[in-house]
Design a protein around this nucleic acid. Structure first.
Lengths: 142, 142
DNA sequence: AACTACATTATAATAATTCTAAACTATTGA
DNA sequence: TCAATAGTTTAGAATTATTATAATGTAGTT
């Protein structure tokens, strides 16, 4: 399990103690080919399964927020009831499939760079995010 | 108060009964020069002041959602803790000032149209929204 | 091994939103 | 005009999501 060691190192690098829960969470979140989008609920289930034992909800919240603060995760808010986290923390955009409630990364080729011509005076742009909501062609939207 | 009559008509048009609460809410929301951005909490306060009496929280939620469903309001979600409503329901983009927690409409001249080159197969685009988070130039972001 | 600081946990507390059912009101049409 | 009725408002309860608490546990250091 040299991957585990990787995660232990990575956690240490950002000043997070590599506890059993955090390493397991890393396995679930980052040991994948593709970017991963999830809700807290999704994650609790997956980690419990992976660890084969309960994990405290509070721990998942704490750890997700710790990862977010350290730049391992990014929050993507769809509406007041749907908040996702994304393991891809680079600047990129999203499709949201309203039929399946699935969040999908935009590929660089999917969308041209957003051209902001005029910014608020005296302010610096911290992020630019595009959210494209899609749904089945043959049914009513929303 | 011919404005009231306007609101009464508009409510009727979309099949909402023009109750005292709804008309007052319309006054607060739509009787303005500029687009208006607000949270539910903001709104409860403003309506109570306007009516000079309490309005039930449940009514505000109900009515905001009714207005949203009928296309009078649009929800803009910043993150899981900050959800705004916008009286400008046309397709447009936003700046979000992280210093002041203020949501600001992008003018058409502020940003070029977003060019989506490749959509999810078999899906129709329902909306495209850009959110530009800004903050003071001279202090740390986030 | 033992100390210390940080993490985890179950549970309680808080906050945001929705539900409920009783009271109320706008609309309809006799 | 007035009663019937269907939709609306309300306070408060219920639900859900998230955060706080404080006791226990664990990683890192000596």
């Amino acid at each position: 399990m040299s991957k585990n060691c990787n995660f232990i190192e990575k956690l240490r690098e950002v000043g997070l103690r590599p506890t059993k829960q955090r390493v397991n969470m890393c396995e679930v979140l980052f040991n994948r080919e593709k970017t991963f989008h999830f809700t807290i609920n999704d994650l609790v289930k997956m980690i419990s399964e992976k660890m084969n034992q309960k994990i405290s909800l509070a721990t998942v919240y704490n750890t997700v927020h710790a990862f977010e603060k350290k730049g391992y995760l990014k929050e993507i808010s769809i509406d007041s009831h749907k908040s996702y986290f994304d393991t891809n923390t680079s600047s990129h955009h999203h499709f949201f499939d309203e039929d399946t409630n699935e969040l999908i990364d935009c590929d660089e080729n999917d969308i041209d760079p957003v051209n902001i011509k005029k910014n608020i005076t005296g302010k610096k742009i911290n992020s630019v995010e595009v959210l494209i909501k899609v749904a089945s062609d043959n049914q009513n939207q929303k």
